[in-house]
């Protein structure tokens, strides 16, 4: 039967008619969570391989992981509207809630990243008391005795962290565009790719070139996952993938995520491997990939808030 809505009395700001429950802080956290997860996976891999050529990459992952995670946690905390109860996340575990899983994954990740961070305390720009330095050195020597378990745990927890950022959205079935089992693996691969891009920013050109084939492969897998996700997401039409491909987010999706974040970087990296472009030109690729990975989270999050059953 034809019907026309004339008026609505009793809308709550930020809920109806437009849902604005999560904002850029959550999208930023989803990006940083994936990035840190990817860095933990790389760090674990570097530790297990024990090759000298990976030393610089491992040091960068060690030094960047904890501050980045702290930034992500700060964004999450900023989003809470009842901050005085934030400690409640750590007094319960609810298996049905991805956010509860995420709280505990973040807690374990903080410990692991902390253990890796403190081994570089001498690089810190401030002087620590001798007693603290002795304590940090003792902890570092202890972690050296359990290096393989720490590396393995780093890879497992990093994978969990990046996957959980996808599960956080995909389990909310009220938003059709999030209701896909492919979001967690998409965010995982994107997280690993963005961590690789982050490391490339700091590595010498030779190491950068060695990472390029892996980076290209990750981008191609991410592209395949992205389009499979769009083709299989549950609710077709204007509240489904059309929001991304032809709707209000199409410009950002195609320009920032697909072309800027995946196709152009892949083309640059393939060109670099084949010596078609100079390394200087190819150095843009990691920046584009990081922007694309962030854009993916922003676009999917905000499109999801507009996507209703």
């Amino acid at each position: 039967m034809d019907s026309t809505e004339i008026s609505v009395v009793g809308n709550n700001e930020g809920v109806t008619p437009v849902l604005e429950s999560w904002d850029w802080t959550v999208a930023g956290y989803l990006f940083i969570g994936g990035l840190v997860g990817g860095l933990m996976i790389f760090a674990g891999y570097f530790m297990l391989r024990k090759k000298r050529e990976f030393d610089r990459g491992l040091r960068i992952a060690d030094l960047a992981g904890l501050p980045l995670l702290a930034l992500g946690l700060a964004l999450l905390f900023a989003d809470l509207s009842n901050k005085e109860n934030a400690w409640r996340f750590f007094t319960t575990f609810r298996p049905s809630s991805p956010m509860s899983w995420g709280s505990w994954i973040l807690a374990v990740a903080t410990v692991l990243l902390g253990l890796r961070f403190i081994r570089h305390h001498r690089l810190l720009p401030w002087d620590l008391p001798q007693s603290v330095i002795r304590l940090l050195d003792r902890v570092t020597r202890w972690t050296d005795t359990i290096a393989r378990p720490v590396a393995g745990a780093s890879m497992v927890v990093g994978t969990s962290l990046a996957l959980y950022t996808g599960f956080l959205l995909s389990t909310i079935t009220a938003r059709p565009i999030w209701d896909s089992g492919l979001l967690p693996p998409l965010f995982l691969i994107s997280g690993i790719a963005s961590a690789g891009a982050f490391l490339c920013l700091w590595l010498e050109s030779e190491a950068h070139r060695k990472l390029a084939p892996l980076s290209v492969s990750l981008c191609l897998v991410e592209l395949a996952l992205l389009f499979t996700y769009l083709a299989t997401v549950r609710s077709p039409g204007s509240f489904g993938p059309d929001l991304l491909t032809t709707g209000s987010f199409a410009g950002w999706f195609w320009a920032l995520v697909v072309f800027g974040g995946l196709l152009i970087p892949v083309t640059l990296e393939i060109s670099e491997i084949r010596h078609w472009v100079s390394q200087r030109v190819a150095q843009i690729a990691p920046y584009l990939k990081l922007a694309g990975a962030a854009g993916l989270r922003f676009v999917v999050l905000f499109a999801g808030l507009e996507s209703i059953l």
Binding site: N12, E13, G14, V15, T16, L19, S21, W22, D79, L80, S81, N82, K83, N85, A86, R88, F89, S97, M99, I172, T173, A174, R175, L305, I308, L309
Partner: peptide, 17 residues
């Protein structure tokens, strides 16, 4: 905690902060 997961998950928009 005001994480708003429930606000986002409600298919009817019946919750508010």
């Amino acid at each position: 905690t005001g994480c708003k997961a429930c606000v986002t998950a409600c298919p009817y928009g019946m919750r508010y902060v």
